[in-house]
Simulated scan of single mutants.
Amino acid sequence: MKAEILSLRFIHEGWSKFGLAKVRLADGSEAEREIEDHGNSVGILPYDPERRVATLVRELRVPALYVAGAQTQMEAPAGLIDDGSPEENARREVLEEAGIRLRDLEPVGTTYSCAGISTEQIHLFLAPYRAADRETKGGGAEGEHENIKVLELPLSALAEMADQGRLTDLKTLTLVLALRARHPDLFAG
């Protein structure tokens, strides 16, 4: 027997939708499961191979504030997919958040951010850039109250943070590890 959703009711519909699903499990028993749905997203690690740096952002993350008292989190630029392809949205997000106009995108993969509760699939990209590709100071889209701080860090520092377990954002950790695996020469010496 395969698992199946018997019923689904949404108890909140705002930026995210929260629902309760009644599920028949593979063994025939029934259970209730929670579902959070806010759409799919993109996550991008812009990096300058000449200067061996990456651009990340720091912004308020209220859930981290709630559970850990952390005011902000350092992470790769990211955002929800609005209209268009994941690639178009990746370029838009990096321009809004970090002020960099991207040309090339290297797909890393599409994964569930947390399949146990969320429907979100995140499209991950590595994105080389040059210093001349910076068009604005970044900071986020006007009217979205993101208050983003743009950070440029040496790739060696990001590798050290990954090795020490200090990258607390999963997409950022994944992207740093992917960059190290695909372009180890950027981290040499």
Rank of each mutant, 00 (worst) to 15 (best):
residue 94 V to C: 05
residue 176 V to M: 02
residue 89 N to C: 12
residue 128 P to F: 04
residue 161 M to R: 11
residue 82 D to Q: 15
residue 109 G to A: 07
residue 115 A to S: 14
residue 47 Y to P: 01
residue 70 A to Q: 11
residue 118 S to N: 11
residue 38 H to M: 06
residue 129 Y to S: 04
residue 129 Y to I: 05
residue 145 H to T: 10
residue 56 L to S: 01
residue 5 I to S: 02
residue 40 N to T: 04
residue 11 I to S: 10
residue 162 A to V: 05
residue 148 I to L: 05
residue 57 V to Y: 05
residue 156 S to A: 15
residue 142 E to L: 15
residue 77 P to K: 05
residue 149 K to I: 15
residue 117 I to K: 08
residue 64 A to R: 12
residue 144 E to W: 14
residue 118 S to I: 09
residue 140 G to E: 09
residue 139 G to W: 00
residue 104 D to H: 11
residue 38 H to L: 08
residue 101 R to F: 07
residue 134 R to D: 11
residue 103 R to N: 12
residue 132 A to P: 04
residue 59 E to L: 15
residue 152 E to A: 05
residue 37 D to I: 08
residue 145 H to Y: 15
residue 61 R to M: 09
residue 100 I to T: 03
residue 71 Q to P: 14
residue 103 R to C: 07
residue 58 R to P: 05
residue 106 E to P: 02
residue 86 P to G: 07
residue 171 K to D: 08
residue 22 K to W: 01
residue 85 S to T: 15
residue 124 L to A: 06
residue 153 L to D: 09
residue 47 Y to L: 04
residue 135 E to C: 03
residue 138 G to Q: 03
residue 92 R to H: 14
residue 1 M to W: 06
residue 105 L to A: 00
residue 110 T to M: 08
residue 104 D to R: 15
residue 73 Q to F: 02
residue 103 R to V: 09
residue 154 P to E: 14
residue 140 G to D: 06
residue 155 L to H: 02
residue 173 L to A: 10
residue 139 G to R: 01
residue 3 A to Q: 13
residue 187 F to P: 04
residue 75 E to W: 03
residue 85 S to Y: 07
residue 89 N to P: 02
residue 1 M to Y: 10
residue 156 S to T: 08
residue 70 A to M: 11
residue 74 M to N: 09
residue 100 I to H: 00
residue 83 D to L: 12
residue 158 L to V: 03
residue 169 D to H: 14
residue 86 P to K: 01
residue 102 L to D: 07
residue 154 P to Y: 06
residue 13 E to T: 13
residue 30 E to F: 11
residue 92 R to D: 13
residue 188 A to Y: 08
residue 40 N to R: 02
residue 49 P to Y: 06
residue 6 L to R: 11
residue 113 S to Y: 12
residue 112 Y to A: 15
residue 119 T to Y: 13
residue 152 E to W: 02
residue 54 A to N: 04
residue 123 H to N: 11
residue 165 G to C: 00
residue 113 S to Q: 14
residue 121 Q to I: 10
residue 183 H to A: 03
residue 50 E to N: 04
residue 35 I to A: 03
residue 19 G to I: 10
residue 154 P to L: 14
residue 122 I to P: 01
residue 136 T to C: 06
residue 51 R to N: 05
residue 160 E to L: 15
residue 189 G to A: 15
residue 158 L to H: 03
residue 36 E to P: 01
residue 122 I to S: 05
residue 40 N to F: 01
residue 98 A to Q: 03
residue 11 I to N: 04
residue 79 G to T: 08
residue 38 H to S: 14
residue 99 G to M: 03
residue 173 L to T: 10
residue 168 T to C: 07
residue 44 I to P: 02
residue 189 G to V: 13
residue 50 E to Q: 08
residue 30 E to I: 14
residue 58 R to I: 03
residue 4 E to G: 11
residue 31 A to K: 05
residue 107 P to I: 02
residue 183 H to V: 00
residue 44 I to G: 00
residue 145 H to G: 12
residue 26 A to S: 13
residue 136 T to V: 06
residue 129 Y to R: 05
residue 66 Y to W: 06
residue 187 F to L: 14
residue 20 L to S: 11
residue 66 Y to K: 12
residue 55 T to G: 01
